[in-house]
């Protein structure tokens, strides 16, 4: 497996507050990489840096051989980076179908007519087909999270970045999401998944990395990462879960 995403010593700060003071890691093609860490560890900030909503002050992000460190989010999307938001951000005035159509047409660079079948495919995959003509603003939390994934899938991503898609869901719903991720993996999409639910992370990921105050604490096999003493101390010591 080749490296698809390479993060080289990135520093990210909001004003004077440094969130990530130097972080490097690699993501291999076809892998599911889990990211855990206590609140404030910089997980979502890392996601924002990868997707282009915040630009690192130092370091490089290489995606598929291209330096994307300073690229706009919309160009990264065209290259094949898709993401979901921790708190879903659907286009509330649009139907489910239209939401996904935005990703499938703009994100994947297709005309609207060409995007339609891909759009339907993505909607079917996340199980929203029955609700495809409902306004996104009227969906339940689980369905909104599904919609987030469908919209990202519509952009035809090489890497899918999932930001706490399981947070706030019931155990059965989390299982649904896990099944979906497993299904997506078989289609060859590389996935980076931020999540708090450790059980899910251990079950669903190939590699697990733990962040603490913006630095890499541990990177490797999920179980080994979880059993590592430092991780347990930082993670379980700070966070009640």
């Amino acid at each position: 497996m080749s490296t698809i995403l390479k993060v080289e010593d990135i520093h990210v700060a909001y004003g004077r507050i440094k969130i990530i003071p130097g972080l490097s890691f690699e993501l291999r093609e076809g892998e599911v990489l889990g990211v855990i860490g206590p609140n404030g560890a910089g997980k979502t900030t890392l996601m924002n840096a990868l997707i282009g909503l915040v630009i690192p002050t130092q370091g490089k992000i290489i995606f598929d051989g291209v330096d994307i460190t300073k690229m706009s989010p919309e160009k990264r999307c065209h290259l094949g980076l898709g993401r979901t938001y921790q708190i879903p951000r659907p286009f509330e005035g649009m139907t489910v179908f239209e939401n996904v159509l935005v990703g499938a047409s703009y994100g994947a660079g297709r005309t609207e007519a060409k995007a339609r079948p891909y759009c339907i495919e993505a909607i079917k995959k996340v199980g929203l087909y029955e609700k495809k003509d409902i306004l996104a603003g009227q969906l339940t939390l689980l369905d909104r999270k599904r919609l987030e994934i469908a919209r990202a899938l519509g952009t035809n991503p090489k890497i899918l970045l999932l930001d706490e898609v399981a947070a706030g869901l019931t155990e059965a719903e989390v299982q649904d999401v896990q099944d979906l991720v497993a299904d997506l993996k078989t289609t060859g999409i590389t996935i980076m998944w931020i999540e708090h639910v450790i059980k899910t992370m251990v079950e669903s990921t190939d590699k697990l990395m733990c962040l603490s105050t913006g630095s890499l604490l541990r990177y490797g096999d999920p179980l080994e990462t979880m059993n590592c003493a430092e991780v347990q101390e930082v993670y379980l010591g700070v966070d009640e879960e």
Binding site: I51, G52, L53, S72, P73, E74, C77, H78, G82, R83, Y85, R89, P90, F91, E92, G93, M94, E98, N99, V102, G103, Y106, G107, A108, G109, R151, A152, G154, T155
Partner: peptide, 15 residues
Amino acid sequence: IAIRDNDSAAETSGV
């Protein structure tokens, strides 16, 4: 309309 509803989500969806 995507931008009007949520600009950052529109941007990360390729708009």
